[in-house]
C-alpha cells in the first residue's frame, strides 16, 4: 500500500502575536516566525504510519510519502516527518502567495499521477489559512471517493477499502470508501485506538497524539530520499481561483468581566447580549 501525505508548513500557532500584515494590506508577513508541520497534517502522518508500520517489530506493509509544497526551507518540516517514520519526501517549490487550494490540488493531482498511491491521507485543513478545501477538490479532480474529517479509520487486512468514521456536526457518520481514495483527518485520529488495519496487532506503543521523532528515527531520516520539483516541472496550471483583496487584523479584544453566578450570566446574555 502506498500512501501520500500532503503536508503544509505553517507558522507555529504559538506565534500568533508575531503575525503582521504588510503595509499595503495585501500580504501576511511571515518574517521571524517559527514553522512547524500543520498539526492536522502531522496527525495524517501519524495515521498513515499506524496503517502500514508496526513500530514494535519494524514490520512494514506499505510506503508513506510526505509531500509538501512550499519554499526550500520546508524541507525541514518534511525531514521532521521522515524522522517520525515516513519513508521518503517530495518538495514542490512554491511560494505561499502563489498558491490557493485549487493550485495545491492540481499540483497534488500531478504527484498522484506520478506516484499512483492507493491513498492520499491529509489534514482536514491547514491552521494558517483554514480553507478546508484541498482534499475535497483533489478527490473531485481525481474522480476518487473521499471521506473527510476522519476520526477513525479501519481497513480489512487486504487493505482494499477503508471504513471511516467522520466527525460531522451533531455526531459521527460512518462511510466506506474503496481505494484509491482521499481521506482527510480530524484531531481524534491520533487517539490510541483510532486506526485499525486488522493486520498489525494494535500497537501498545500508540500514545495519544502524533509520535515523537526518536533519535534513531532522526538518524535514519538523514539518509531518506527527498525529490524536488517545481510547479513548472510538474506542468501545473498555476492560475489562482481565489483573489485576495486585503488582510486586516481582527479588532483588539476589549476587557472581559468575571461574573459571580450562572444566574447573572444568563441574565446578561438575555438582556445585554440578546443571544438567548
Amino acid at each position: 500500500m502506498k500512501i501520500i501525505v500532503p503536508m503544509k508548513r505553517v507558522p507555529d500557532p504559538d506565534n500568533v502575536d508575531k503575525v503582521k500584515i504588510s503595509s499595503d494590506g495585501k500580504r501576511v508577513s511571515s518574517e521571524g516566525l517559527d514553522w512547524k508541520p500543520n498539526p492536522f497534517d502531522e496527525y495524517a502522518v501519524e495515521a498513515a504510519l499506524r496503517l502500514v508500520k508496526d513500530s514494535g517489530t519494524d514490520k512494514t506493509t506499505g510506503e508513506v510519502i510526505v509531500a509538501s509544497i512550499g519554499p526550500e526551507e520546508a524541507t525541514h518540516q518534511v525531514r521532521w516527518c521522515l524522522a517520525m517514520g515516513a519513508d521518503r519526501g517530495i518538495l514542490v517549490l512554491g511560494d505561499d502567495h502563489e498558491l490557493d487550494a485549487s493550485v495545491v490540488a492540481r499540483a497534488l493531482k500531478k504527484l498522484v499521477e506520478k506516484e499512483s498511491p492507493d491513498l492520499v491521507l491529509m489534514g482536514k485543513q491547514a491552521v494558517d489559512g483554514d480553507s478546508n478545501q484541498t482534499a475535497q477538490i483533489l478527490a473531485g479532480m481525481l474522480g476518487w471517493p473521499q471521506a473527510t474529517f476522519a476520526g477513525r479509520i479501519e481497513t480489512p487486512a487486504d487493505l482494499s477499502r477503508a471504513t471511516v468514521t467522520r466527525e460531522v456536526d451533531g455526531g459521527c457518520a460512518t462511510v466506506t470508501v474503496k481505494f484509491p481514495a482521499v481521506i482527510s483527518v480530524d484531531v481524534r485520529i491520533v487517539t490510541p485506538q483510532a486506526v485499525n488495519n486488522n493486520m498489525i496487532p494494535p500497537d501498545k506503543l500508540n500514545r495519544d497524539g502524533p509520535r515523537y521523532a526518536s533519535l534513531t528515527g532522526i538518524m535514519k531520516a538523514k539518509k531518506k530520499p527527498m525529490d524536488r520539483y517545481t510547479l513548472e516541472d510538474l506542468g501545473v496550471d498555476t492560475t489562482q481561483r481565489v483573489k485576495t483583496i486585503s488582510f486586516s487584523q481582527p479588532p483588539a479584544r476589549s476587557g472581559g468581566v468575571i461574573l459571580d453566578t450562572v444566574g447573572e450570566l444568563v441574565q446578561r446574555l438575555k438582556e445585554e447580549a440578546r443571544v438567548l
Partner: peptide, 14 residues
C-alpha cells in the same frame, strides 16, 4: 544541524 533541531523539539515536547 537541522537534525539537532528536530531532536530538540522531541526532547522539549517530552
Amino acid at each position: 544541524t537541522e537534525e539537532h533541531e528536530i531532536f530538540r523539539r522531541t526532547v522539549r515536547k517530552f
